[in-house]
Design a protein around this nucleic acid. Structure first.
Length: 411
RNA sequence: GCGGGCGUAGCUCAGUUGGCAGAGCGCCAGAUUGUGGUUCUGGAUGCCACGGGUUCGAGUCCCGUCGCUCGCCCCA
C-alpha cells in the first residue's frame, strides 16, 4: 500500500504557509471592516440547487467541476464552488432582504474538481466582498476601491492592474449577444472546437477564449459599447467616474466577461503577470439578478472574490512568528518555580515557553532553536536571592535581575 | 478533460554501460556536569512513490497506477 498522502489538489497549511494565508485573511478583514463590511460564515455544503440554478447550467463550474454527492437521506448536496451563491441564499433564508444594504466580508475554503497546478487547487480558499442593496454605480466603485486597498495593504498592488468592462443591462446584452452570434456564426469554421461549442451554449464566453486560433477573430468581434442602452451606458460612465473619485487606477478591457451567468453591468479583474497562467488575482462584478433567482425579491448587488493562495504567493514579506521568551530551569527542583514565572509572563501577553528536558546546555540549545529573544535562567543561588538570570540571546549579554523587575525588563 | 517534465534520507539533490545506497544541510551524542549561536570529533538516516515485468543481478530498462510540477482548458 502506498503511503497516505493528502487527497489530490489539497494540501496541508503549516508554518510559514499558514502564516502567509492568515496574513492575507487578517489584512483583508481589517481593511474591509474600515469600509463597513461585516464578516459572515455560511455552510461549506449547500443544496445542489443553490449552485446549479444560479451559476448557469452551462458554466464549466456546474457542468464538470462540482463536488456533488447524495447524502444518506437521498438529498443532493454540493461542496460550495464559490461564496456568492451561498451568501445570497443566506440573505434570503434570514430575511435580510428587508434590511439592506448588507455589506458582507467572507473568507473560507471552496471546492472545485479541476486538474491542480500552480495557484489552483481542488480545495482552495477565497476572500470575498459582497455589497448587497445599492443599485448606485458608486457602490461598484467602492467595492473595487476596497479590493484595491486590500492589495495595497498586502504590498502586492504594484504588479497588479485593474481591468474593467460592462456587460450592460439585459437589453444591451441581448443586442450585443445577437451581434456576436451573427459575427461568430459567419466565421464558425475558423473558431476552435471549444469556441464552436460555446457558440451554442454561451457565446459571450468566446470573447474570453485563450485559444490562439480564436484571437484574430475575437480582436475584430463587435464590442458592447454601441449596443448599450442609454441607461446602461450612463451606469458604466458612473462606475468609471466613481473609480476616479476613489483614486483607483484602472484600464478598460472590452474583452472581459464572466464565467458565471449571474453577472451584468460591471465586470472587473485585478490581473498580474507574476503568477504564470493563473493571472487573475481578484475578480467580480455586478449581479443584480442573483438574489431573485434564489427566491428573494429583485435585489441589486456587486462583489468580488480573490484567491488566497494566489495572493499568498505574491506577498513580498512573510510575517514572522513572535519571538518567545524561553524559561530555563537549571534543575528539576526549580520546575515548579519555572511554571509560576512562565504563567506570569503569559498573563502579561508575552509568548513564553518552558524548556523542561535535558541539562542546561540542551535547554539553552532548544531556546536558541525556537528563536527565543530572551532566556530567563532559573538557578538555585538566584532563587535564594529572589532573582533570575536574564540572557539576551542575540548579544549574549546576561545579568541578574530581581524577579519583581522581570516583566518590565521584557516589555 | 489534454500534453510535457519529475518522484532517491526530515530538506535540497548526486547516483557512470544495469554490479555494496551517496553528499550537503538538518538531526542525535561528545569535546563543555550552571549557558545557546561559531568550531571540532563521532553516530543514525532509506519500502530508491506504489504495483508488476525483463535480468544471474534493477534506484538505473519496460508496462501500469498514484502524486507533484509546468502548460492547455477553465477559473479566484
Amino acid at each position: 500500500m502506498s503511503p497516505l498522502q493528502p487527497a489530490r489538489g489539497t494540501r496541508d497549511l503549516i508554518g510559514e504557509e499558514l502564516r502567509r494565508h492568515r496574513h492575507v485573511i487578517e489584512t483583508a478583514r481589517r481593511i474591509a471592516e474600515t469600509f463597513g463590511f461585516e464578516e459572515w460564515a455560511t455552510p461549506v455544503f449547500e443544496d445542489t440547487r443553490v449552485f446549479s440554478r444560479t451559476l448557469g447550467e452551462t458554466s464549466d463550474v456546474v457542468m464538470k467541476e462540482m463536488y456533488s454527492f447524495t447524502d444518506r437521506s437521498g438529498e443532493s448536496l454540493t461542496l460550495r464552488p464559490e461564496a456568492t451563491a451561498g451568501v445570497c441564499r443566506a440573505l434570503v433564508s434570514n430575511g435580510l432582504t428587508q434590511s439592506l444594504p448588507q455589506k458582507v466580508f467572507y473568507a473560507g475554503p471552496m471546492f472545485r474538481y479541476e486538474r491542480p497546478q500552480k495557484g489552483r487547487y481542488r480545495q482552495f480558499h477565497q476572500i470575498d466582498i459582497e455589497l448587497i442593496g445599492p443599485a448606485h454605480p458608486l457602490a461598484d466603485a467602492e467595492v473595487m476601491a476596497c479590493g484595491h486597498c486590500i492589495l495595497e495593504a498586502l504590498g502586492v498592488a504594484e504588479g497588479v492592474t485593474l481591468e474593467i468592462n460592462t456587460l450592460g443591462d439585459a437589453a444591451s446584452r441581448a443586442a450585443w449577444r445577437a451581434a456576436l452570434v451573427a459575427y461568430f456564426t459567419a466565421r464558425r469554421d475558423e473558431l476552435s472546437a471549444e469556441s464552436q461549442a460555446r457558440l451554442e451554449r454561451n457565446p459571450l464566453r468566446i470573447i474570453d477564449s485563450k485559444e490562439r486560433a480564436d484571437q484574430p477573430i475575437i480582436a475584430a468581434a463587435p464590442v458592447i459599447a454601441p449596443y448599450l442602452t442609454p441607461s446602461a451606458a450612463a451606469f458604466y460612465a458612473g462606475v468609471k467616474q466613481g473609480l476616479l473619485r476613489f483614486g483607483v487606477p484602472f484600464r478598460e478591457n472590452p474583452r472581459i466577461v464572466r464565467g458565471l451567468d449571474y453577472y451584468g453591468h460591471t465586470a472587473f479583474e485585478f490581473v498580474t503577470t507574476g503568477l504564470g497562467a493563473q493571472g487573475t488575482v481578484m475578480a467580480g462584478g455586478r449581479y443584480d439578478g442573483l438574489v431573485a433567482e434564489m427566491g428573494g425579491p429583485p435585489t441589486p448587488a456587486v462583489g468580488w472574490a480573490a484567491g488566497i493562495e494566489r495572493l499568498a504567493m505574491l506577498l513580498p514579506a512573510v510575517p514572522e512568528a513572535a519571538a518567545p521568551v524561553a524559561v530555563v530551569p537549571i534543575a528539576p527542583e526549580l520546575e515548579a518555580h519555572a511554571v509560576v514565572i512562565l504563567q506570569r509572563l503569559r498573563r502579561e501577553g508575552i509568548r513564553a515557553e518552558l524548556e523542561y528536558t535535558g541539562n542546561l546546555r540542551r535547554r539553552m540549545e532548544r531556546a536558541n532553536r525556537i528563536g527565543a529573544r530572551w532566556a530567563v535562567i532559573l538557578g538555585e543561588a538566584e532563587r535564594e536571592r529572589g532573582s533570575v538570570q536574564l540572557k539576551d540571546l542575540a548579544s549574549g549579554a546576561q545579568s541578574e535581575v530581581p524577579e519583581a523587575d522581570l516583566i518590565a525588563r521584557l516589555s
